[in-house]
Design a protein around this nucleic acid. Structure first.
Lengths: 409, 409
DNA sequence: TATAGTAAGTTACGATGATAAACTAATGAG
DNA sequence: CTCATTAGTTTATCATCGTAACTTACTATA
């Protein structure tokens, strides 16, 4: 009842101050609760080993009795974060404060079911290596390369990993580990990580992450929360149409066939094709068909005509799509990630093209988290889940009320 | 403290049941609170005249003591809703249950400051005509034809009404009436109204309203809340680019000039131009240049070639833009409103074109609220505000605790 | 027409948990 | 060495909730 609610408030203040310790007097000021109430709640949290007094002599510097600082016990709770990629899986364990205490990179394998088995095995091994982690595991979060439908507990459109649609990842992990499991799109989680990386704990409220690699994905953070859409399929930026079909159904004209999409212009494979096409059209080039995308971009910067053509065709299509994002969703910033997207040559080109579409474009940035963005986002989401359930789970159960302090006279 | 929180829970249940009365036993079932608690809280609500017992004999039909139904007192709270349009202003008063008890349509005038004066004058007059309304006014909501920047309390991009940028509408009305004032974009409020009209009180959680008239606007409802963007400018659908510029900045080719936008194809004036253009291109037509848009659409349906061309060019551009909305935001439904948009011939054409872009398109619907959508949305938002503040305002103040019931023996 | 059954609502009481106010504790400044 | 100042505790009190038993008012059935 009321106790849990106020306990959560105290815990939230402790989290907000972490990793700095904080005195009970300060908690009183920040929560508005009374001194005895805070003392009792902190004693409860200490009793269940979530908080503890600490002796840090950090500049008392004023008159009056010095405060007794309390801090969160990092080892009182652990979470697992997972990033399932097309070729590699990252599995890691973090403590209550989000410190990563173990991490491992393994091959994905050929089938989703095998990947799930790998996750369980690696998690078990990592948990065993950390004292108290297995007993105090509190949450799991997994990033997947596709659209996760929470209602069906299945991952769809994960084109490069068969078997995902038949796999109930969440149910499987929950029954195996006995803790809440969250599953989400990889780019969405990367967006969470970017948000945290930028403004500490407070998520900056409106921005977009665009991940460009083999495919193109997008994560929308709106009003500080991740947005998923009515069917969980928001942010499928790669499928956005670039060419119009024209007025066909009954009116005159109109192109035949399907409209081209952004993935036909700005994904890794598409940029290869555009390079080939430019060469076939007679552009001078020092490149053959088998180079990687960063090399193409570098060549474009040093003046290679074919590479330049490919870069700018891709950047224009991307700028066109971003103009739509701007007018529809109005993000304050766009962060680029992924093997192709996290490239400043590409982002600079997109910025040039975008200036032709918009007078007041959002700021474009390159991700600094590299390949670990999704993994870090998974850890962050899992820690949030843990923080929310900690008080209810442990204070709720710990039946013998610990305080009623004061030894009998 | 706790009392207010539980009081709000009881009030919410009363609202959810409205306009049907509800017994305290039923409130116990729906809130999970205990019988004495609910009795006391309902007595409190009755004491401050928000609820009252009613004698409706509605099918007792079972054994046991019959329930004593309670209902909300509609006249215990009033709100003002306003829709500021380019030419007309709607001002209305509604009671606690959202029943509109007074409404007036007046000319906007030439300047925003004059419009604000009109709103105050009309509101005062309407309030005077309703018993108790002036004393129990609880909230105001105003819809404006532009982008409202809450931080600056100013309306921008309201092209057809000068003086808005200098007018602090919210501050002015709040100081004049002494109640909270909400200001929002007109299409956003129309989206709220559509949401309520569809699923009773529960807002259906993800959909989009597109208003097509002289301009094109859009309201995004996501996860049940209106979304406004980082700068309050989300949903500027009319400005979305339709033609690409091509790869110019350094690469080869690229169109000169600015990209065309959706407003160049699908707004009322644009459809006129498209008709003219089709006639000049030699299309047979029985129309001259001075017809209104619904007439053009009707002619297109009966086979007029030029009208058909205009309709399908507009519909294709709209379908292209909707394809972007689909992949970026994934709404479950799109509702069309406005003088041009609320036309089933137009919506049907858009639906045909959209099928060429999307395999699984969102459902397209025509608004049923016509010109009152924004006004009704304003009323709904104001009633929500009132509902949230009612308990805190009145139970919080009413110092003499009314119950401690039972006369001394 | 009695009487049992059932559900709504009230009374009485005890448990929980929060607060205010006064008190104790620990420090720095004069 | 005392005082001002701030941290934390003790004590008393108050508010509010829930449980359990009771009363009330009606239906159904004998």
């Amino acid at each position: 009842m009321l106790r849990l609610l106020n306990g959560q408030r105290v815990l939230d203040v402790l989290f907000a101050a972490a990793p700095e310790p904080i005195s009970r007097a300060e908690i009183v000021r920040r929560t508005g609760l009374s001194k005895p109430t805070v003392s009792a709640l902190v004693a409860d949290l200490a009793y269940i080993d979530v908080a503890r007094p600490t002796r840090v002599l950090h500049s008392p510097s004023g008159p009056g009795r010095p405060a007794e600082p309390y801090e969160l016990v990092a080892e009182s709770g652990f979470v697992i974060g997972v990033d399932i990629g097309a070729t590699k899986i990252i599995v890691g364990v973090a403590d209550l404060l989000g410190n990563i205490v173990a991490e491992e990179l393994v091959d994905t394998g050929a089938h989703a079911q095998a990947a799930a088995g790998t996750i369980v095995a690696v998690s078990d091994r990592l948990l065993k290596g950390i004292k108290g982690a297995a007993a105090n595991l509190g949450a799991i979060c997994v990033g997947v390369p596709g659209v996760y439908r929470a209602k069906r507990d299945s991952v769809e459109m994960a084109l490069n990993l068969p078997g995902f649609a038949q796999l109930s990842l969440r149910a499987e992990l929950e029954s195996r580990f006995g803790v809440p499991v969250a599953v989400d799109n990889d780019v969405n989680l990367a967006a969470v990580a970017e948000s945290r990386a930028r403004s500490g704990d407070t998520a900056s409220s409106d921005f977009t992450v665009i991940s460009v690699g083999t495919g193109i994905g997008m994560g929308l953070v709106m009003d500080g929360d991740l947005y998923r859409g009515a069917n969980g399929a928001a942010g499928e930026l790669g499928s956005v149409p670039i060419t119009r079909l024209g007025p066909s159904p009954t009116g005159p004209g109109g192109a035949a066939g399907a409209a081209t999409t952004l993935e036909d212009y700005a994904s890794g494979p598409a940029i290869h094709k555009l390079l080939q096409q430019a060469i076939e059209e007679g552009c001078v080039s020092g490149l053959d068909g088998d180079v990687d995308v960063p090399t193409i971009f570098a060549a474009a910067q040093s003046g290679d005509a074919a590479a330049r053509s490919a870069l700018h065709r891709a950047a224009d299509a991307m700028a066109f799509a971003i103009a739509h994002i701007h007018w529809l969703n109005d993000p304050a910033a766009i962060v680029f990630g992924g093997g192709v997207g996290a490239n400043s040559i590409f982002v600079t080109a997109v910025r040039q093209h975008l200036a032709r579409y918009l007078d007041d474009p959002p700021s474009l940035m390159v991700s600094t988290l590299n390949r670990r963005a999704t993994f870090l986002g998974a850890i962050a989401v899992a820690v949030d889940e843990l923080r929310g359930s900690l008080v209810a789970d442990r204070l709720g159960r710990a039946q013998p009320p610990p305080h009623r302090q004061g030894p009998p006279a």
